[in-house]
Amino acid sequence: MDQFLQHALNAMILGGTYALLGIGLTLIFGIMRVVNFTHGELYAFGAYMMYMWVMLIGANFMVSIVLAIALGVALGAVIEIVLLRRLRGADIDTTMLVMIGAWIAMQNIEQLAWSGVAKSINSPFPSAPLVMGAISVSWTRLFVFAVAVVLIAATNVLIQRTRLGKAMRATFQDREAAALMGVRIDTVHTATFALGSGLAAAAGALLGPVFVVYPTIGDLASLKAFAIVILGGLGSIPGATIGGFILAFMEELGAGYISSGYRDAMGFLLIILILLFKPTGLFARKERIG
């Protein structure tokens, strides 16, 4: 029983960050129809910015998180304006190739800038874990979970309650009709990509101090994010949130009770099963085509 509780707690904490990663990607795909291969690199970028602010410059930990996210938002906006804006109307394959190129270029720039040696980021939380009976969890991870929940909630508010969110939803439903109604598609696209990138950078900034930072950390983050988005249904925020938690529970319990060698396989097995019965994912919304 203790073991189960510990697994469940681990999965809960992991699920929060998975959800954060998934939401950013699903937003970008849903609204822009762009398969964003740079998502993982934005995650790595967030982590490296955290390293820079906390370890090299010596800024306050909380301030550093805000700065890392802000820089992620800015980088996302730059990528959208420089690369994606020119590709508007290009077919999805062309865009995909450009994004793959951007992904490889960004990863190599990280390698050049920071070298291949892993960096660690000090966290201000006590290194002794919080102990509850036989189960325990580190304070840093609890903090990460709390911030992830806040960010997910804030994103939901932004999409559902603000004017920009309304414009985003309109663009998602029918880009042409939204443009005819006076929605500035360019602004919506830049804002969407910047927001999605900011969420990825936030995940990186939060998890950097939990793990260590090296140039290829983005690859795994990217892979998980894609899995979550497909699981939850392309373009669905609740789908990505719940998908994140499902994937985390599946991996954790699969590794804990079946075999750790197949930890990643468990998650993908579940995705195959769900797609067999619901080919659009769990929560895909209907959209108007043409």
């Binding site: 073991q3 510990q6 681990n10 992991l14 290829t216 950390i217 795994l220 590794a255 804990g256 750790s260």
Partner: peptide
């Protein structure tokens, strides 16, 4: 005898089993 993917970063499941 637990294993992990060479790229994995989270080992909580494996370590929980090892603890047990």
């Amino acid at each position: 005898m637990e294993t992990m993917d060479p790229k994995a970063t989270d080992f909580s499941a494996q370590l929980t089993r090892i603890k047990a």
